[in-house]
């Protein structure tokens, strides 16, 4: 399982870092699960939601499960508003 620890501001500016990390995670053969750790995330914008959808599409194509952990506060609110609990397992 690969864990991607996200920054306090998860927005467009984290695009390259994020795609690099999940790209490596999807390349590693044994990894059939990716965890997005939201412990530090205070804010995410719609671009971040878009990046997560892209990750979800790529992960589904490889039969890899994506889980969100430790989401809280405004970040959790945004995920719920966007109904991302229907796309990801949020723990």
């Amino acid at each position: 399982m690969s864990t991607i620890v996200l920054p306090s501001k998860f927005n467009f500016g984290y695009h390259k870092n994020f795609t690099d990390q999940y790209g490596k995670a999807l390349e590693s053969a044994p990894s059939k699960a990716i965890t997005l750790d939201f412990s530090n995330v205070e804010y995410l914008d719609s671009a971040a939601l878009g990046m997560m959808v892209l990750l979800k599409k790529k992960a589904d194509a490889q039969n890899t499960e994506v889980t969100i952990i430790n989401a809280h506060g405004a970040a959790l609110d945004v995920l719920k508003i966007a109904n991302f609990q229907n796309l990801f397992s949020i723990k």
């Binding site: 719609s46 609110d77 508003i81 966007a82």
Partner: peptide, 16 residues
């Protein structure tokens, strides 16, 4: 829709 990669910004603000 929920699978869109873009266009949800204003919808998000409306909800908030």
């Amino acid at each position: 829709d929920k699978h869109s990669l873009s266009g949800r910004g204003i919808a998000l603000v409306r909800q908030l």
